[in-house]
Amino acid sequence: MNIVVLLAIAAGLIALRFLKPNSLAWSSATWVAVYVFLRYGVVPPVPASVLTMFMFIITLSLAVYLTTTEDRLKEVSNAFVSFFTDKKYTIPLVVALIGLPFIVAFRVYQNLTQLPDPPVVGRTIHPPPPATITFKGRQVDLVDEDNPYRELETSDPTAFAEHVSNGRLVYYQNCVKCHGDNMVGDGLFARGFNPIPANFQDPTTIAMLQESYLFWRIAKGAPGLPVESTPWSSAMPAWETFLSEEDIWDVILFMYDFTDQRPRAKEVHE
């Protein structure tokens, strides 16, 4: 939800109160307020199809509101009648009568010139990993195996720091071009890709994954993605051809170290 828009709407409505508008103006203002809120106030934006339906319901209930009591109905109909008959409204009336067909025509034009959309393909961003993968002929158990150098963090901090600095080297030699200097996925090449490279600073990426999952993704890259994640729509190379097993584990250590995050703990099977 966008707080700024919300506050602006509230301020607008409160300001309108002081003008003491009639029911019609008040209802129109409510309509616009709801529209602005749904269109700009909600993040991510409400899809157009749903927005249309919501606005239809709002329109209906405002129509109900305006016609429930005789007084209010009269207020509305008088406003319309005076708009059509009063001398002082001649210019707005002419503008409206000429403008409305143009607006409709413009909408038709817009609809007709719209480029066709490709169908939406649902893509699983974090597909479930296989139980085992083959890394350079060795069977790697993704369920039970863990980063072999993670334990050094407590048992041998100096050795751990070495691994991390090796990871730094690996990262800046290979990964930085896409994933960027600060690991937010804005490297030099990032703009050319869809989907864009992962942002490791985002708490919903590496922080919620296990290290073995990262190992799988780095080693196998886009070609190793399962069907539900539509292989080839990601540009991630399969690094197993370029990096050693140790390099990969090291760069994983560095990624967590740099972003100040912890890998997701292994689930304990009872």
Partner: peptide, 19 residues
């Protein structure tokens, strides 16, 4: 579902079912 991380699924998710 296959690989859904939603909470409160009505039926077991099939992601990683082989394991």
């Amino acid at each position: 579902t296959v690989g859904s991380r939603d909470s409160g699924l009505r039926f077991p998710d099939l992601g990683g079912i082989a394991t």
